[in-house]
């Protein structure tokens, strides 16, 4: 009886294809103002200001990196202090004694000598936090994505700008979403299978 297309199990989202960065900027802003939250933009190159137009909040990655680096610094200082000079024979079952080697008459805990290692471990853990934090925050690795499956959206790596509204968005109603996307004057609208 009903002939209108309805969201079903196989529909993952609706994609609108644009041909200029200006159009997708406008579309992203309009989509956000329309109340959609589960949408994304795919562009062949970074478009300045698109994050802002989409309402994407600033990443928390720098904060993670700061604490990653701080962990590296503390770890390095602990590692060197412990191995160089520690003695734990009061409460431990087995007496633990560090390698108490004197090197060129320096004290066992020689701060200047510890700095290069502390520096390197800070850099190492900051870098690892940056890379793997990025992976986690972006939910990578992502081995399958509906946008990549569609043969009609292949030009997003070349010269097309695509806005995708996911069917799972609380505001998503098929007819409304289609009408809304059409009002943005896209080149075409593509239904994406899950």
């Amino acid at each position: 009886m009903s002939t209108a297309p309805t969201p079903n199990d196989t529909l993952w989202g609706l994609a609108a294809v644009f041909d200029t960065p200006a159009k997708i900027m406008h579309a992203a802003k309009a989509t956000r103002e329309r109340g959609f939250r589960w949408f994304d933009c795919h562009t062949p190159f970074p478009v300045h200001g698109l994050d802002f137009a989409m309402g994407v909040s600033y990443t928390i990655l720098p904060i993670l990196v700061f604490f990653g680096g701080l962990t590296g610094t503390c770890l390095a200082i602990f590692l060197q202090t412990f191995t160089n000079s520690f003695e734990l024979d009061i409460w431990a079952l087995v007496p633990v004694v560090g390698y108490q080697f004197e090197v060129s008459g320096k004290p066992l805990i020689s701060t200047p000598a510890f700095v290069p290692v502390a520096f390197e471990l800070t850099v190492l853990l900051s870098a690892l936090t940056t890379v793997f934090g990025m992976f986690v925050l972006n939910k990578l690795p992502c081995l399958y994505h509906p946008v990549l499956k569609s043969t009609q959206l292949k030009r997003i790596t070349d010269d097309r700008f695509v806005l995708v509204i996911e069917a799972g968005d609380p505001e998503f109603v098929m007819e409304d979403a289609t009408d809304f996307l059409r009002s943005l004057d896209p080149e075409s609208i593509v239904e994406l299978e899950a």
């Binding site: 060129s104 008459g105 200047p112 000598a113 700095v115 290069p116």
Partner: peptide, 12 residues
């Protein structure tokens, strides 16, 4: 500054 200091401190 630290690199300069450390080399001199280490070699003594």
């Amino acid at each position: 500054g630290f690199s300069q200091y450390m080399l001199i401190w280490y070699a003594n």
